[in-house]
Design a protein around this nucleic acid. Structure first.
Length: 544
RNA sequence: GCGCCCAUAGCUCAGUUGGAUAGAGCAUCUGACUACGAAUCAGAAGGUCGGGGGUUCGAAUCCCUCUGGGCGCGCCA
């Protein structure tokens, strides 16, 4: 809707050009800001300053000329030039009331746009080895990926969520061995564990289950264990409200011969070389600091080899925009995968890799230690059972992906205002309760659609409306910069505005018309809280 | 040694991609319920944006450098 405002500015600029007041060879994109301070208006733009620097005219003068060409009336109340050359627009009440009606009438659709134009996007996340339960680091990636996918869908992309199952390679072999060893150990035989083996308690669980399967060959046990673990993973994710459209098997790439096919293709393009008995991909040609092995001396392909085929397959399926979400410890892998993208003939911007940083779990204010060697790590399931999906998801979305985070178990569990997840959900429940109260109290209130919104006149009411109108922009920003945490912060602020408004003002009163208008405003807040929480995969409870 | 990420209030963190006087929450003090959910709100206090240079009308934001922390640097995944 702020498009309307950009149109006004563009129109003014056009006028200046026609009248010969400004030359303006090229119109810069009009970036609208929402100033924090009231004195700077409802919308502000700095584009007069941008033009000025290109045309060599003092910025204030350019701003004055453009400002003079902006028509005031129903929509724009006042135009001011301020500071070094900002153009500040002050909007009329009628404009805000229209925006408010727009939000409420759109309901669940409010905030959604079609800027993505149905473009196909593949978002790959978690992609854990199916050699054990998901841990807390996976949980952060899971929330990030799922939320990001929700956001991209909201702005009109055709999103596919994919889990790449690393069910080939040596890790799986290690898993099988671990189960074998565990069984031996339980029979009282002496066994020798090495650092490649998995030692978590779930190995015992798997070992115990082996008795129930047919055959005890390595293959049968491997199949059984992978299937079992994958089921755990799926169940955890389901309870965590994380959805996938596709589970893509690494082994499938070998079965269909795609890995060899791709290596041949790259060989034809001259990106493959043989050295020291191994086969290498010349990633160095695309800025990697060394070439990478795709086939070992033993003839076995590496993980990287199948990953090449995997990414080729993504493009082949018609996705021209790929997003990979990785744990930050994989950052060293990035140059080689970017090299693959380019070697396959794609623009390097077509793949965006988001590195999600590490998580430290705090209990009683102290970090919980994990020992990979002893197989001790905190699983997604542990935390899910302890704090619940809503708080867990909300907490993970309170940090930007590239910052390490601390996850405070006690805080997440607290049913109190210092728990931000609770605070936002509470605002939603509270509004719901007020609306119910009003409906019970008076039948006349049943329809708030025809409320006379001119009855809204408090500054804080219009602050809320302005903030509501920000929502679509926030989603757009989050989508563009792959920063889902912006939604979380926005919701906290909106909840705060509401709580404050509620405490200062009576919503339901004897003044029926005013009550209706205020309920209308509250319902808009409810719409946005609901839509925002839904994007985060967090419930918007009517009661708590 | 090389590379990536981080450093903002006592603590945990935002900061709309270079804008105007740097913001929240928690913790700490002081206040507010015989009316719609006090699971809430109002107020106070809290800062050399890690240090130092540079780029320009303008820097927490971009560049260089130093310091401190995390993570990588395999014919593992």
């Amino acid at each position: 809707m702020s498009l309307l405002v950009t149109d006004i500015l563009k129109g003014a600029l056009d006028n200046c050009r026609k009248k010969g007041l400004l030359e303006v060879k090229e119109i810069p994109p009009v970036l609208l800001e929402r100033p924090k301070k009231d004195e700077f208006g409802d919308y502000a733009t700095n584009f007069a300053m941008i033009i000025a620097s290109k045309e060599n005219i003092p910025p204030r003068r350019v701003a004055d000329i453009i400002a003079g060409a902006i028509e005031t009336g129903d929509i724009v109340r006042k135009v001011e030039v301020a500071g070094p050359g900002f153009i500040n627009l002050f909007m009329n009440k009628i404009y805000w009331i229209r925006m408010l009606r727009d939000a409420v009438s759109k309901g669940e659709m409010y905030g959604k746009t079609d800027t993505g134009k149905g473009k196909k996007v593949l978002i790959e996340f978690i992609s854990a080895n199916p050699t054990g339960p998901l841990h807390i680091g996976h949980a952060r990636g899971a929330v990030f990926g799922d939320t990001m996918a929700n956001i991209l869908e909201a702005v009109g992309f055709d999103v596919t969520r994919e889990f790449y199952i690393n069910d080939a390679g040596s890790q799986v072999k290690n898993l099988n061995e671990s189960i074998f060893l565990k069984r031996k150990e339980e029979r009282g035989e002496a066994v020798k564990w090495d650092e490649n083996h998995y030692r978590g308690e779930y190995i015992a669980r798997l070992a115990a289950g082996v008795d129930n399967i047919k055959g005890e060959g390595a293959e049968e046990i491997g199949e059984y264990a992978l299937g079992e673990i994958l089921n755990w993973i799926k169940r955890d994710l389901n309870d965590f409200n994380v959805r996938f459209d596709n589970w893509f098997s690494e082994r499938g790439l070998y079965k269909t011969g795609k890995v060899d096919k791709l290596l041949d293709e790259l060989r034809l393009k001259g990106f493959i070389e043989e050295r020291d008995g191994a086969v290498w991909f010349r990633s160095i040609e695309f800025g990697d600091d060394k070439n990478r092995v795709v086939k070992r001396e033993s003839g076995e392909p590496t993980y990287f080899a199948s990953d090449i085929a995997y990414h080729y397959d993504k493009y082949e399926r018609g996705f021209d925009s790929l997003i990979n979400i990785w744990g930050a410890d994989h950052h060293g892998y990035m140059p080689r995968i970017m090299a693959v993208v380019q070697a396959l003939g794609h623009d390097k911007d077509s793949l965006r890799v988001v590195l999600v940083q590490m998580v430290t779990i705090l209990r009683d204010g102290k970090p919980v230690t994990m020992s990979k060697r002893a197989g001790e790590y905190i699983t997604l399931r542990d935390v899910l059972d302890e704090v619940g999906s809503d708080a867990m998801r909300f907490f993970f979305m309170m940090r930007k992906s590239d910052a390490q985070m601390e996850f405070d178990l006690e805080l997440a569990k607290k049913q109190a205002p210092e728990n931000p997840a609770f605070y936002v959900q509470y605002a939603h429940a509270r509004i719901n309760s007020i609306i119910e109260y009003a409906e019970e109290k008076s039948l006349e209130l049943s329809g708030i659609r025809d409320a006379d919104l001119n009855r809204l006149e408090l500054k804080e009411e219009f602050d809320i409306i302005r903030f509501i109108t920000l929502f679509p922009e926030i989603i757009g920003d989050a989508a563009q910069s792959l920063d889902p945490h912006r939604i979380t912060f926005y919701l906290q602020e909106l909840a705060g505005l509401f709580h404050s408004y509620y405490n200062r003002n009576r919503i339901v009163s004897d003044d029926i018309q005013l009550t209706k208008a205020r309920l209308y405003l509250c319902s808009s807040i409810k719409v946005v809280l609901n839509n925002g929480l839904t994007l985060l995969g967090v419930s918007a409870p009517k009661k708590m």
